[in-house]
Nucleic acid binder design. Structure first.
Lengths: 232, 232
DNA sequence: CGCGCAATTTGATCCTGATCAATGCTGTGC
DNA sequence: GCACAGCATTGATCAGGATCAAATTGCGCG
């Protein structure tokens, strides 16, 4: 029996394009892997040997300069696809931010399988187009927004992305604290800021009564309207 | 007879995935359109009604904020694909920077055609993955690089992108002046800087003997090594 | 050829966010 | 319950790039 039958992302990941038999064939060339928070799955500039689906957890995609500056270029969640199919090198590192579970494939095996399953390639195309749109929108933030706009935009984006699915109850949303999977440094690396600037913006938003900060990793949005105004 | 037989991008655009008969079918649902420099093909936030291939010319993809700040999120050249297939809205405006010729399709027509031609979807997937890689690399520049690093990186990127193809002769490259398809303001919008900062960086590089500026739109790279060092 | 406009360059000043430095908090292991 | 390590906050100062303001250049056009 294939693991896939029980897989929580079976119907949301690109695997949703496949029927039971095809899924079994894909399963045969892949395997599960657990990652501890902080562990890396691939490194920037490395040959593209693996691709993967995220089953559980949150991972970052990041690039850096020689002298150690880092920019997080993407964050992936369960059902998202990782890696560079049909290419020789991986342009960014992939590191788990929380403990994570992924379903990995040899890149060449996956390429060959995908080329024989157009429905799978189609799902991957839709996902990639969506990711490109999201990434381009983020460029406006990096290139043109001020620190306060960046932080406000970030919090709003997080409140959408981290909402456990099926939880669309607004009252509940209002009460729930976001639990960020990021340290302050990582938030800075997402926004193109320093840790100090991020910290100061958080403190200011709290003082203004826009958010509350119950603990280091939690944020409660008290005044969404104000955040939206500040996000520009 | 189909226009496509004479098309200069026939073998480089996604059309290369199709045989003569398929190409004729695709041609039947598309048409050529000429754009004058400055003319827009689509607008940010608009319904996704069109997609297109670039036949000739250079176009920018851009987003902006309410208050008029702009960020160029992509630049497309002949054989590149434009627009958002399989989606409802276009996330950015598309505007010709030079006079241009494009081959446009109704988005829904194109979607339907693509779904029936996996080889075309595959080409589109490869192109989209490549574009995503390029875009992510640009995020490092926007988020983490200084003005001088940004300008140096830009000039190097341009010297690669604008090289007419088949012209790999290094001696010739060294002598040739790049003719930028961008105004200073557009360069600023690509790099997330102001026009004044871009101008000052250009002036400084010229004073340092790294580049020469024969005219407003031309740049000669005199010391590629120095530029590479500065690009970080 | 010279006029007029827009793009670019140059200059002076300001301000946001970076940097440097110190202090405070929190969760962990003993 | 306490000490320690790693994060995070807070404070003081600095600097890179933005902003505001002029001068200059180049170019299309009569």
């Amino acid at each position: 029996m294939s693991n896939c039958d029980l897989c929580v992302v079976r119907n949301r990941a690109i695997c949703a394009a496949l029927d039971a038999g095809e899924l079994q064939a894909l399963n045969a060339i892949g395997r599960r892997r657990n990652l501890a928070a902080g562990e890396s799955l691939m490194w920037e500039g490395e040959d593209s040997v693996l691709v993967a689906n995220v089953v559980e957890g949150v991972l970052k995609l990041s690039t850096g300069t020689e002298d150690g500056r880092e920019q997080i270029v993407g964050v992936v969640y369960p059902s998202d696809f990782i890696g560079r199919p049909f290419g020789t090198t991986t342009g960014y590192g992939v590191t788990a931010l929380t403990d994570a579970r992924v379903c990995i494939f040899g890149r060449k095996d996956f390429d060959a399988f995908a080329r024989e399953h157009p429905a799978l390639e189609h799902k991957l195309l839709e996902r990639t187009l969506g990711e490109l749109d999201r990434t381009r929108r983020w460029m406006l933030l990096l290139g043109r927004k001020s620190a306060s706009e960046k932080v406000a935009t970030f919090l709003l984006e997080m409140s959408e992305r981290l909402m456990p699915m099926g939880c669309n109850d607004l009252a509940e949303q209002a009460l729930r604290a976001l639990v960020l999977p990021f340290s302050r440094q990582q938030i800075a690396d997402i926004l193109g800021l320093t840790i100090e600037t991020v910290s100061r913006q958080f403190t200011r938003l709290k003082a203004d009564g826009v958010i509350d900060l119950p603990s280091r990793r939690e944020v409660m949005i008290l005044d969404r309207r104000a955040l939206q105004a500040e996000a520009g």
